[in-house]
Design a protein around this nucleic acid. Sequence first.
RNA 1: GGGCGUGUGGCCUAGCAUGGAUAUGGCAGCAGCCUCCUAAGCUGCAAGUCAGGGGUUCAAAUCCCCUCACGCCCGCCA
Length: 587
Amino acid sequence: MEESPQYFASERGDRFLDPIEPFRKEVESSITRALEEIHFVSSWNLEIPPAEIADFALPCFQFAKEMKKSPAVIATELLSKLPTMSLVSRTWTDGGYINFKIDNEKLAYITLETILKEKENYGRAERKGVEVLLEHTSVNPTGPIHVGRARNPLIGDTLARCMRLAGYDVVTEYYVNDVGKQVILLTWGVENIPPESVPKSERNKADHRLVGFYQKANEMMENDPKITDEIAEMLRRFESGDETIINKVRRTAQAILDGINQSLIDINVRIDRFVWESQFILDGSAKEVVERLKKTQYCHEEAGAYYLDLEEFGIKGRDTKFFFTRSDGTTLYTTRDLAYHLDKFKRADHVINVLGEDQKLGMTHLEAALKILGVKQAPENVFYSFVSLPEGRMSTRKGRVVTLDDLIEEAEERALEEVKKRRIDLPEEKMKAIARLIGRGAIRYNIIRIQAEKPIVFKWKEALNFEGNSAPFVQYAHARACSILRKAGEYEKIVDPYLLQDDYEKKLIRILARFPGVIKEAGEKRRIHIVPAYAHELASAFNQFYTYVPVLKGGDKTNARLTLVESSMWTLRNCLEVMGLGAPEEM
RNA sequence: GGGCGUGUGGCCUAGCAUGGAUAUGGCAGCAGCCUCCUAAGCUGCAAGUCAGGGGUUCAAAUCCCCUCACGCCCGCCA
């Protein structure tokens, strides 16, 4: 190296968490100085050009109008004003662009040094000291969680992981809906329907065992108005604080919730805290919300039921009336959710909800009500579209579902078949453990790779894809890296960019350098789907390197290459971890 | 009827917030690559009216308007 290692460790103590950062900073400050020199003040945008054109580019079209010169002329002039840069190896113009090529060797040096130093923390930003309360999943405890709703825990859990890595303190919560008709109907069903009239479930798990009672009870209620009355009476007693009813309902809900939570654990989703909706009835906070809302100018009454008129809040058409009590004085779902949100704001700096798209209007109502209550904060909502079946929407009530448990089981079986095909040498237990990581990984990956607001039609073939843009593709690259390192044993780590001059090596290093930036964007802008896209790009570059560049038989370059393999391994592993996938060391 | 969202090769998808250089990948298809670190891999080929139409702009997949298709919501349900 021409430069001493100390050179690179100057700016931020001795730590560069993001290897690209010093390069971008130098380019930006050079452009600022060049513009100052010609006394031109304007905001501008630095781009990352497509493909391999350059590393950064400044389009000068944006200045043309004000400067009254052609973009090409501006680019040439500005280029001549750029100060000498130490981290940029080449600058040139192309039409209306100024292109910047950063110094490959310096980038490689900083990148590999950073990764080897940070290891499992490569990609982790400094703590921001911001407490985030992230509510996700919160599915009704009336039956097993199905694939239609499974996007929620996967998006929520992945977002939590991304945000933690990006420096936030995140607590995840599941809001348990134990109040209201659905759970009460379920409880009624469990008490009043003889077990032999409900079809036996295939799985011995409470959520699967009890859902039949819920479906049957729905059916019975449709044909018998007396049951509807009975449910309403139970609901009234529940809301007035009748402990026998509340305990009964909670017991049933808890049994199902345990089943749901087991499914979540199976796909590596951990909820930090469960918050029961009935809590806000028992502690009086829902009633308090009612009293406060009643005193506002937006409150009106209709046959004993109270509502807010939200016309002023940009809500149009028939949706302006937001009822917050029934005519018998009991509270409604959104009223209790309002109490929950007031509670959330007390406990966190920032509140995020992951919700199905069907909740949009409800959240608009809730946000308007919060404003009326004088609350300054508002929740940030991440909405997702439902996963449907080719034959239509999934429905627990109608029993038209693919449950998450079915999907997990199927995925692990398929994965086990694949493992058995290629690794007959492994003991059965080891094969199963690998299949588990691959199976559940494939499920998570295939859901989180797609933007939340896009609809997904569930197809088994796609859900169980183990090739190309899939979890096993990334896991496989990681396993290959581990395999090389295992065979190498102890080796001398050498960070020397001049020994890594192959195009495949340079390409791989440039991708490795981008990881912290990807995490930052995923966490701060809640764009988690860019993580699997990046992971695939990285794995693909590693596979190319693996195919064309010999490591163990690399002669005097072996140690430098092993260093690159180890850096790739850490980055792949951190990618897998932040997606909640698990990184098998062999497969 | 109103509100919100989605529409990119046969199928799935990135890019849209912040308009810029040949629209990103994958699956399926076709043609190749395992005496050499795991072929869940690699290479090449073929495949696109960026739903349609107007507009703004030097420049539109990206911004604005209209239309069409699909999804979600519009309950004193949750």
